[in-house]
Amino acid sequence: MAEPILSVRNLQTYFRPDEGIVRAVDGASFDLYPGRTLGIVGESGCGKSVTARSILRIVDRPGKVEGGEIVLRRHDGRLVDIVGLDESGAEMRDIRGGEIGYVFQEPMSSLSAFYTIGNQVMEAIHLHKRVTEKEARDRAIELLHLVGIPRPEQRVDSYSFELSGGLRQRVMIALALAAEPRILIADEPTTALDVTTQAQILELIRKIQEERKLAVVLITHDMGVIAEMADAVSVMYLGKIVESGPVDEIFHAPKHPYTQALLRSIPSVLAEPRSRLATISGSIPHPYARPPGCTFNPRCGNFMPGKCDQAPPPATTLSADHEVRCFLYGEGVAT
């Protein structure tokens, strides 16, 4: 496979509010390749959104990237460690939008109500490219057309509140693509949308990815969306990537008890009507009260006393790109 465009190694992003410390991301590692989609899946509090925000260096206070590295291969071939950059420095601003475009869950709050959508797309173009006003406007219309907004020549002058949720999310994608980034981070891009609109947006992301050989990070809690879109999957639970591997192996040969349980517990349209679901007992612990050892141990069906609750399990490599953090596999074979 080609060189990764982005490599994250042992990323640690911690929040230190007055009450204690929350290890929102605790040692995440993954690689991103052009033209491929990495799905990061997990439930609330697993750190999937903070991971995305760490890559963009837009973690909210009191959070901070405290360790690890995020190596980006820039368009000129230079390797840059994003962790070492100044959050608001010139290079980081250039990377944000220029190299990495991003789409968030709530398009309403990400778009300004004071400027037309055209203004906003043009601003994004101006930030990274030296173009005239006329060129930027043409480019904006082109982008709106690309993301499937009907009558873009007219819509370019409308305001975000005049658009439906689906159209707003399309505008967000146009914004993210304005400076022709090579990476697209989409954080729950369809969660606020209806199912038929979701299908439209996923289709759009897939189409653009094929055309532009984008590397996509798709962050979601929805296993269905992951199965639909991802090439590789990282499953997160309470700040750790508990399992990562190719999408087919994750869904058809999951190894971590959490992945297995999660897959069993999701409702499916293919299930028998009124069939009971397998459940994961208990609920996700409070971020201040993370259990010691493997964080999944109190809810795990394969809990081994004296082992799982002692130290966190190391990563075990099962095949070339399938890794799991669980004591059930290859005792202590660290990578």
Partner: peptide, 12 residues
């Protein structure tokens, strides 16, 4: 509507 629902199986 049914067709739009993502199925949690990459083979489908």
């Amino acid at each position: 509507l049914l067709s739009a629902v993502p199925v949690p199986d990459p083979r489908k």
